[in-house]
């Protein structure tokens, strides 16, 4: 493994200090809510990135796995009094299984057809949840109980605890993604995304790798769903299983930088910040928050199509071009 240079050590140490200090510095329930949601959206983006970013299969139905993760925690607690520390992994397994079945059927499609098909499946799942009383139907499920052990059942009274715990989980997933990014698996996914015919002719079983990517993305999104459930302690299909959620998952990654390690985190930070602040401060002007939010998203996607993560590279290239142009300019 490559050793980190001292500059990089300092950078990571600085980031760690910021992560520790931020929740203390902005010590309000609203700030903690935003930070927690940033963590959840970062996980959602990192998960979707495997199928949408690396493999290039635009799934518009990842709210399914978000919901499975959330409902797994809720229902396993209600039915078997199972701790969410275990239930979230059961949710991940369940999501991987569902993703296997859906992926086997849908991944034979490409492009728009796959995008629409995943959206249609998500809509079907939403209707099933609404009409299934066993999982709370349209009214949803509520899991808060003051009697439960807060640590064992992940129901903390302090919002700051959620922030620290979720940040730690995001860091763990990030390290995993960073490691995976340099493995055969991710190179193969990028090759499939770039040119599936060429990839197949170089010995890549594209169908299997796409299915694996879809399952992995479902697992990470499901984990985010479980964490969301533990933070909100309530959910219903209209809250978690809508096409809006699926679109937001795509948007987080697209805005941050598709197919990159850090893009989804940047996207999550910016999008959550914009959406939460416009929602809170502009919601009394009916719909204005959504208009501003939408316009900002359009502007970013229009003018920075490679995502926010590409900005430093763009600035560097611009400077280099100016530098070269300056050298080539004839002396007067």
């Amino acid at each position: 493994m490559k050793k980190l240079s001292s500059k990089r050590y300092l950078l990571w140490a600085g980031i760690l200090v910021i992560l520790i200090v931020l929740p203390l510095l902005f010590n309000t329930a609203f700030s903690h809510h935003i930070m927690t949601m940033m963590c959840i959206w970062a996980l959602l983006g990192m998960g979707w990135n495997f199928i949408g970013g690396y493999a290039g299969q635009i799934s518009n139905g990842h709210a399914i796995y978000y919901a499975f993760g959330a409902y797994a925690n809720a229902m396993l607690l209600q039915w078997f009094n199972l701790s969410p520390w275990i239930a979230m992994w059961v949710g991940c397994l369940l999501s991987a299984g569902i993703a296997f079945l859906i992926g086997k059927g849908l991944l034979r499609f490409r492009g728009h057809v796959f995008a629409i098909a995943t959206m249609a499946v998500a809509e079907c799942v939403r209707l099933i949840f609404i009409n299934t009383k066993a999982v709370g139907g349209a009214t949803g499920v509520y899991i808060f109980s003051a009697k439960l052990n807060p640590i064992l059942y992940m129901q903390f009274s302090s919002t700051r605890t959620y922030v620290y715990l979720y940040m730690a989980i995001v860091v763990c997933v990030l390290l995993f993604v960073r490691w995976l990014n340099k493995t055969k698996f991710c190179y193969y996914l990028r090759a499939i995304n770039g040119n599936e015919t060429a990839a197949e002719s170089a010995g890549i079983n594209a169908a299997n790798y796409k299915l694996l990517a879809y399952m992995l993305s479902a697992v990470i999104v499901s984990l985010a769903g479980s964490l969301y459930m533990q933070f909100m302690l309530y959910t219903d299909p209209s809250m978690i299983l809508t096409s809006n959620i699926s679109m937001m998952i795509v948007l987080v990654t697209v805005m941050g930088g598709v197919g990159t390690v850090y893009g989804p985190i940047i996207g999550a930070i910016v999008l959550t910040y914009i959406s939460e602040y416009t929602r809170v401060y502009l919601s009394h002007y009916n719909g204005l928050d959504m208009v501003i939010y939408g316009v900002l998203v359009i502007l970013i996607v229009l003018f920075i199509p490679d995502g926010l993560i590409s900005i430093p590279g763009r600035i560097k290239r611009h400077r280099e071009r100016r530098h070269t142009a300056g050298k080539e300019a004839p002396a007067k």
Partner: peptide, 19 residues
């Protein structure tokens, strides 16, 4: 059929990962 999203080195690496 170059894999245009990758560099030249990575294109060849894809082949080298075959075995």
């Amino acid at each position: 059929q170059a894999i245009v999203t990758l560099t030249v080195e990575e294109n060849v690496l894809i082949g080298a990962l075959c075995h």
